[in-house]
Structures are given as C-alpha cells and as structure tokens.
C-alpha cells in the first residue's frame, strides 16, 4: 500500500508539494495528472526515499520511506520516463546486472522469460541496448521491476515518447500487474492513457491534490475537460 500523509516539500522558494495526502491500495492503480512542476515527480521521489518531506510522511506498506529507504526499495519497482541502460551491455546482461544489484540471481532461461513476459521480442534479448528503441528499453525497465517481484510500482511518465503500440502494451502489462496484486502509482501527462489504465485518477496542481475521481466514472473527454478547467483556474 502507498500512502502520503500531509506531506509538504519546498525547494528554495518553490513549494513543490503542499499538505498532500493520498493512498493507493493493493491491486489498485492511481494515476496522477498534472502540468510540469505540479509535484508529480516530487511525490514519486518522496516515495522512493530520494527526497525527505519537510513535513508529513510518505509510506510504503507502512514503512516510512525517509527512514527505511533501503527496506522500502526492496519491494519497489521504479520505471522512470527514460529507461536508460548500459548501452554496451545486451538487454539480458542489463537485466542480469540490475537483478544482481538487488541481490537476485536468475538463470539465463529465467532472464529470457522475464524479458519475454514484459513484451521484449526474443531476438532483441542479446542485442546491445545501444540499438534499442525507447519502448524496448522501457520494457527492460519493467522487466527489472518485475524481476524484483515488486509489490509496489512507481512510474514516472512511463509512456512518454512511446509509440502507440508500445504504449498499449505497457497499459496491458500494468493491468496484469495490478490484477496480480501490485500497487501502482503512475504520474503522467497522458490523460487518455491514464483514463484507460487507472482505477483512480488524481489531478495535482501546485503541489496539491485538487481533484480525485474514479476511472470508470469519467469518459476521456470529460476527464480532459475537467483537467483543463483545473489548469486554467
């Protein structure tokens, strides 16, 4: 379970997050929409334990991320906007490296299976990552998180720059993960993708959660209208 309780964070004179509270339950996907600088990435970085909130707390499965960062990270899968990997290693070597960093050792077959399960074509597994497209790298990134058997996924603009097919594959994968019991928080600009994937949607503005609604309750057009309204006001 992901929890942010009355968290605030300022950088110099800018308040990135203000008294923010949110919760994502097991098997649930929460999408955070917001303009640039709305505080989406700050939220994710607080949950990753990279940023300590000035007040309030960020919790993963009840553990305070600023105090128990290493324990928390053992159960977190993180997919940034750009999954950059070691270009001179192959996809499988990158996956192996990251798994080993997390203390996990998989056989070669298991590593291939993991990449396959995340949608990477088998012929790409042994190619150097320098030849990968962004979508392919994103899939390796997901495989890294998946291999950790993460129970919580934090995604920062995961579909940004992906082609429609790769984006759609990502959506399916996230739904599968949620169905398997994963807790997912996804920050995005992409209203339509968020509407399609997320169980709940939050709109962030100037570090505050200004609106929260359920995915099934709104159509994509309605969500877009609401979002633009909040952004204009």
């Amino acid at each position: 379970m992901i929890q942010i309780q009355n968290a605030s964070k300022s950088f110099k004179n800018t308040r990135a997050v203000q008294n923010l509270s949110l919760q994502v339950d097991k098997g649930e996907i929460l999408g955070l929409l917001g303009a640039n600088g709305a505080g989406k990435s700050t939220c994710i970085h607080m949950l990753l334990g990279f940023i300590k909130p000035d007040s309030g707390s960020a919790l993963i499965n009840g553990l305070d991320t600023s105090q128990k960062a290493r324990e928390v990270r053992k159960i977190i899968g993180y997919i940034p906007e750009n999954v950059n990997l070691y270009p001179f290693l192959s996809g499988i070597e990158n996956l192996d490296y990251f798994c080993r960093l997390a203390g996990l050792k998989y056989s070669k077959i298991a590593l291939h299976d993991l990449l396959g399960a995340c949608g990477l074509q088998p012929e790409a597994h042994d190619k150097k990552v320098s030849a990968y497209s962004k979508g392919m790298r994103q899939k390796v990134g997901i495989a890294i998180a998946y291999a950790k058997k993460a129970r919580v996924y934090l995604l920062d603009e995961p579909a940004s720059g992906l082609d429609p097919l790769a984006s759609s594959e990502l959506s399916s994968l996230l739904k599968t993960l949620a169905a398997e019991g994963a807790t997912i928080l996804m920050a995005s600009h992409d209203i339509f993708r968020v509407r399609e994937v997320c169980h709940r949607i939050g709109i962030l503005k100037q570090g505050q959660l200004v609106k929260e609604l359920r995915g099934e309750e709104v159509s994509a057009n309605e969500l877009e209208r609401l979002y633009l309204e909040f952004m204009k006001n």
Partner: peptide, 12 residues
C-alpha cells in the same frame, strides 16, 4: 543518462 535512481532503487 538518468538511470542512477534505477540503481538506487535496486536497494544496494
């Protein structure tokens, strides 16, 4: 290249 957080998240 922006994947230092990815390494940090691997709990090492």
């Amino acid at each position: 290249q922006g994947f230092l957080p990815l390494i940090e998240v691997q709990a090492i």
